Amino acid sequence: MDRGTVGSASRGRLHVEIRHHGASAVVTVSGELDHHTADLLRESLEGCVDDGYARLVVDCSPLEFMDSTGLNVLLGARLKAEAEGGGVHLAGMQPVVARVFEITGAEAVFTVHDSLDAALAD
């Protein structure tokens, strides 16, 4: 069940949109995720878990840039979601974003999907 967009916020060069799809919170992140904008994503992901959505699907397809601060936000969300019996699924990463996960080895601790549709079907 898709309830449409339930939240949307922007800060600087980052835009975050949240919608619910069944038991999942789908968080679409677009723009640039760095130390200037990371708090917006952190607050959004933590809010989803606080609202009872422990399965977080992060649609990274429109994300143009991410640095280590963004990676740390996702790692923190993963810990919080797993503590509630869920997890973080990453979908549709562009090569520039996927490279951050490859360099750090962080792709090993996330469930990574080629597309949002694949993540929602999992």
Rank of each mutant, 00 (worst) to 15 (best):
A81C: 06
G22P: 04
L71E: 04
S30Y: 02
I103R: 07
L33N: 12
R42S: 14
C48N: 07
E46G: 11
I103V: 15
T5H: 03
G4P: 14
D34I: 08
A91R: 04
E107S: 01
L14Y: 02
G92F: 10
L79A: 10
L41A: 14
G70N: 06
R55S: 01
E107A: 01
V97W: 08
H20M: 10
G85I: 09
S8Q: 13
L71R: 01
D50W: 00
V96K: 15
S44G: 15
H113Q: 07
L63Q: 12
L40Q: 05
V88R: 00
K80Y: 12
Q94L: 13
S115P: 00
A81G: 06
G52P: 04
M66F: 02
H21N: 03
V16R: 02
L116P: 09
L63V: 11
D59K: 01
G47K: 12
D39H: 11
P62D: 09
L116G: 08
S30D: 08
A54Q: 12
G92K: 07
A118T: 06
H21K: 01
C48G: 06
D50V: 00
L79V: 10
V29P: 14
A54N: 11
Y53V: 04
L90E: 03
E17T: 15
A108E: 13
G70L: 07
E82R: 10
G92P: 10
S44M: 13
E43F: 04
H113R: 05
S8C: 10
A23Q: 11
S68F: 08
D51G: 02
R11Y: 03
G92Y: 09
T69R: 04
Y53P: 05
K80M: 14
A91I: 06
Y53S: 09
A83H: 08
G47V: 12
R3G: 10
V109L: 01
H20L: 14
V49A: 10
L116S: 09
L90I: 05
G22Y: 03
H15N: 13
M66P: 02
V57Y: 05
E43T: 14
E46F: 15
D2T: 09
S30P: 05
V26T: 05
R19A: 06
